[in-house]
Design a protein around this nucleic acid. Structure first.
Lengths: 264, 264
DNA sequence: CAGTGGTCTAGACCACACT
DNA sequence: GTGTGGTCTAGACCACTGC
């Protein structure tokens, strides 16, 4: 017995009221509904990052559908990088803590060699303080103007050369208790810390990239001469439900590294 | 009756002889083999861009497999953007000529509004000449040093403002007969011209992005002041078989536009 | 209406990992 | 061997397109 086809309104977040609803009966295939149910379990942390989820057969029994339908739901979640399939072992909740997928969102690579030859980055927290969200900041992070925001500034160096200067803004509430000390003490990607310490999983991001000239404070922190062009990378990272959870603005040196992008 | 499982050596292009073949029996699932056969038909232009391919049932009969197996092969080709499914109509060979997917590889967008509000770019061919491939150029385009190469320089303007300066290098042989006149006369994306006039389909590309300072000739062509930072976007575009067919280096103004990238 | 792709099912078997 | 995901099949039915 299959569950009813709940007429889910598809992705109507902040849809304009002017939009004609038309005759669309809002049909949603079964596997999409199952996908939604699995997504709910991920959001509610029923299954945590790194853990395995129940087998396809178990989920099929739980949702009263065939294994094939569960499979298709999991297929999509896997291609969204929310789940990771491992043949013979099971299906696992994706995590930023594994070596394989570490720095998934960092697309800066050295011109010669790769991340392995280069080794891990040296990290230095320059600043970490709380402040009130400006109107712009509030809009981007889906907060209200004046809400608490955490601001972090740090420098990443490769082989001793300062290469990345980053400013981060995080919503205060979910990241209550985050301090410069904890950031410094933690060894591993920042998104892994967010995951394990604050239960915040970043699943998607969007970047706006520009070429800019380094300003005075940037030149000082990265030891750069005048008129040095930098790559400005403005990123908004999202958790489940398209909730923005981080605004990050990176300034990358691109004389020895470049931003790599594959177009498909 | 299913075809034999041909032990296809998977992606062994220029594999070092040192590599141990190991015990791997090189298993390749049936749908991957079907995918390869469909790919061959695409390469050989049995089905041309914009045309429909045979229905799933027909292909299943042709390859002596079930419809489901053909479906999975087509699914992958569709997610690679080589085919486009249209419910009720059929499956079509992807093309750069359709309005939907035009400028698929151009990720520069205006800070306000979108490509529609902005309208089409004004194009101006600055230069178009034949020359001999340098060693570097030959390596990138998989040619031999000294082979004929076509070099094009052009400027794209939005709302009358020069925004993109591009240098292109194309292998001489496949693009025999391409001239500045033909480039100027053609209205539509350059990749659409490559497709219809030269039978060259670009299916994938890789970009290396840097921040640079505009040099003298760039400043003149784009009417820029001194010390203007530009986004340098170096792109290698590939046809089927991972054959490189174009090297393109674009310089983008990013004061009114930005390079947009989605991370998944 | 017929033809296309899209969904769903049920069952069989294969490849892989652990024990 | 047992359990997992991965492949393949065959058939039924649904949704969309165009005649």
């Amino acid at each position: 017995m299959a569950p009813m086809n709940l007429p889910l309104t598809p992705t109507d977040a902040a849809s304009p009221a002017v939009q004609a609803p038309a005759v669309t009966p809002a049909f949603s295939p079964l596997y999409q509904q199952i996908k939604g149910l699995i997504l709910q379990s991920l959001q509610s942390s029923e299954w945590k990052p790194g853990e395995s989820i129940p087998s396809e057969m178990e989920l099929a029994a739980r949702y009263r559908v065939s294994q094939g339908t569960v499979r298709k739901a999991i297929d999509e979640l896997a291609s969204d990088h929310l789940l990771i399939r491992k043949q013979g072992k099971g299906t696992f909740v994706a995590t930023h803590a594994e070596h394989q997928v570490q720095y998934r969102f960092l697309k800066l690579v050295p011109d010669q060699g790769d991340l392995n030859t280069e080794g891990p980055a040296q990290r230095q927290i320059v600043d970490c303080k709380r402040l009130r969200a400006s109107a712009d900041m509030a809009r981007v992070l889906a907060l209200r103007t004046g809400d608490a925001v955490l601001q972090v500034r740090r420098v990443l160096s490769f082989a001793g050369v300062p290469t990345i200067l980053e400013d981060l803004w995080l919503p205060g509430a979910p990241f209550k208790g985050l301090t410069a000390e904890r950031l410094t003490a933690y060894h591993g990607p920042m998104y892994a810390l967010f995951e394990t310490e604050f239960g915040v999983q970043m699943v998607r991001a969007e970047e706006k990239i520009r070429a800019v000239l380094a300003d005075k404070s940037q030149r000082e922190l990265m030891q750069l001469p005048n008129n040095t062009p930098l790559l400005s990378v403005e990123r908004v990272a999202y958790t489940y439900n398209n909730t923005p959870m981080e605004l990050r603005r990176g300034f990358y040196r691109t004389d020895t590294h470049h931003y790599h992008n594959a177009l498909n």
